[in-house]
Design a protein around this nucleic acid. Structure first.
Lengths: 193, 193
DNA sequence: CATATTATTGAACAGTCGTTCAAGAAAGGC
DNA sequence: GCCTTTCTTGAACGACTGTTCAATAATATG
């Protein structure tokens, strides 16, 4: 009972996520969020708690939408190596295109907040683990189907790939040169051969 | 003529740099800087301009001290591969130790500001170029002395190594596990063999 | 010593920050 | 149709933001 919400929570969360994604946590004001979502401060606080709470919700939403989609795309059938290569190619595409100014909300949060914010650190670490696990699965797949020759422990290879993704995200914010990034990807993938 | 400075500019710049390094740009207030340096707001503005100017000066100071030292260490005599490996080992050591909460001011700035701040972007890009050039020199050296077998273009290998450094800096902020990072370094260096 | 020049001090500025809250609006249950 | 409950509104809060400035202090020069 009582008055129902006049907005769609998911949609507002999506808008808030994009602002944080583009600007970072400290550089985003409540006013920015009010402007983007169309809600009043009171509604924002009533529905999501304070700024920090909303940020945590935005990170979780990111994982549940953006990251989720990527991981599903990765897990599709095909040789392990090809699936990994496809992921990296998409990454370069996005990082030099529409995502040039935003990067990855997880990477951004890891750098801006993780060392000083336990809540954020936990969420970011969990997300990195999830990505690592996805790579792990594909590495094992590739070692079995013969598309990956390197027989080092899959854990280590998966971690290496996860770190490489972070590096690409940083580099593409400072110098989004598609050809250069493709060269980097070529060397990264060469580890698997 | 006139009244001389009562503080050492270099030292104040060093203190300001450390605050920005630890907290980021947006999360650092003038009050923080006043507290750390011991100067009054007026002196700070008189000597360095506004907050943004001071930040640019801090980045340049970082390059002139921290980065400079690293590059000199890299350039010392020895097989190309060993010099590169030594750099990465030092990096892991620092990233999991005293630098665990700070990372790299250039990486931090690339993520937080580069996409929206041209001045910062230029300085960060120049710094990345410098690091890339250092790697380039060592790759060529290694290819000549036989310690590096991979005969791909040195530009590409140098860029790959530079990106790997960024990835390690991000990962060590979210999950500073020394053993895991050493595994990543192992795979990274395997590209050179 | 007088003067010109520069540096220091710290209070003060207008604006913005994140957050709260009393008043009013909209629904369900009786 | 009233009452309870929940949500919305937007003004208001005190604290803090980056920045300025008039007053004062300290030096170099003549």
């Amino acid at each position: 009972m009582g008055r129902p919400r006049q907005f769609d929570e998911e949609q507002v969360l999506d808008q808030a996520m994009k602002v944080f994604w583009r600007q970072g946590y400290a550089a985003t004001s409540i006013k920015d969020l009010v402007g983007e979502t169309g809600l009043n401060p009171g509604s924002l606080y009533e529905a999501f708690g304070d700024k920090h709470d909303l940020f945590l919700a935005a990170i979780s939403h990111y994982r549940g939408t953006i990251v989720r989609r990527r991981l599903e795309e990765m897990a599709k059938p095909g040789p392990g190596y090809d699936r990994i290569a496809g992921f990296f190619n998409d990454l370069v595409q996005f990082s030099t295109g529409e995502g040039r100014l935003m990067g990855c909300l997880m990477t951004n949060s890891a750098v801006e907040l993780a060392p000083h914010d336990r809540d954020v650190a936990v969420l970011v670490a969990a997300n990195l683990m999830e990505m690592e696990r996805a790579f792990h699965g594909l590495v094992v797949r590739g070692q079995q189907d013969g598309s990956i020759v390197n027989d080092d422990p899959p854990d280590e290879l998966a971690r290496f790939l996860t770190v490489s993704v972070q590096g690409l995200r940083v580099m593409s914010k400072a110098n989004p040169d598609e050809a250069a990034l493709n060269g980097v990807v070529r060397q990264t993938l060469s580890v698997l051969r």
